[in-house]
Design a protein around this nucleic acid. Sequence first.
DNA 1: TATTGTTATACTCTATAACTATA
DNA 2: TATAGTTATAGAGTATAACAATA
Lengths: 155, 155
Amino acid sequence: MPSSRKSAPPNPAVETVDTGFLESLIGYNARRASLAIVEVFMVRMAPYDLRIVDFSMLSLIAHNPGITSRQLCATLGILPPNLVGLIASLEKRELIERRPHPHDRRAAGLHLSAQGVELARQAEQTAAALETEAAARLTPSERKTLMRLLQKIYQ
Amino acid sequence: MPSSRKSAPPNPAVETVDTGFLESLIGYNARRASLAIVEVFMVRMAPYDLRIVDFSMLSLIAHNPGITSRQLCATLGILPPNLVGLIASLEKRELIERRPHPHDRRAAGLHLSAQGVELARQAEQTAAALETEAAARLTPSERKTLMRLLQKIYQ
DNA sequence: TATTGTTATACTCTATAACTATA
DNA sequence: TATAGTTATAGAGTATAACAATA
């Protein structure tokens, strides 16, 4: 039963890529949005010589003086062996310091140095400014909605 | 000018971690949501022996027969050297095949094999089912809104 | 016995330089 | 001269096993 015309050429060329199916997935969109923001974030943190993970650690230590390595790991989803170098690096730069934990001699409480406090302040200010830009195409109401819906996904 | 009481103990312990500042950032929330979905996605694709990148490639080839390596790279944000092995792997599993490009002898058009068509169909069905679960706590209207807002961020 | 922090190490992912065949 | 695809390789990120000190 030969057809009078071919339904598709055997070796077609693709003009514009159809991403329709992937774009219908929340995961794809969340990842794309995340990567877009992270890209700019990295550029803005570079002057402070901070990667995103460094910024996150400084911010958490700033708001949680005395936080332990384990607590940082749990909060940021980092495995303990991989945190060791990150902490050592910030300590070497004299941005953070380890103090004895009040009631657990195995652990150390992490604190910002005076320099660390100042750097964290500046970096958080930059992050907040970037936040305004990143959400430039969103109304304040849309931004609030987006945060709420994202948290619904992962909480 | 000594104060009559200390404003904070020198070595406090952190009971519960305050993530308030990070949670105020769209990037942090988008990344957390993305990771939460990706985690489940990986588990569901494992039976097909597909990672997310493999699934994305199969889906794009399915909907864009004849797509080139370069077009896959541009769409998925993968560098050409890193795509070579991914394509070779899918080709070795006889899920995809390379055919001559209609008007560029440097390039090859990628197509799904019969097996590839079937696997892509099943995997996309699984992805769609997962999508429903991932958005279980969202109403259809909220889901639609979330997609729109995420696309506003990265487009 | 379990947990904190650590070392060593392996594996995956991502990035850069350089090459060929063709446009 | 520029682009598609490839090779080789380096670097960053992430993972597991095992250990000492302490709970």
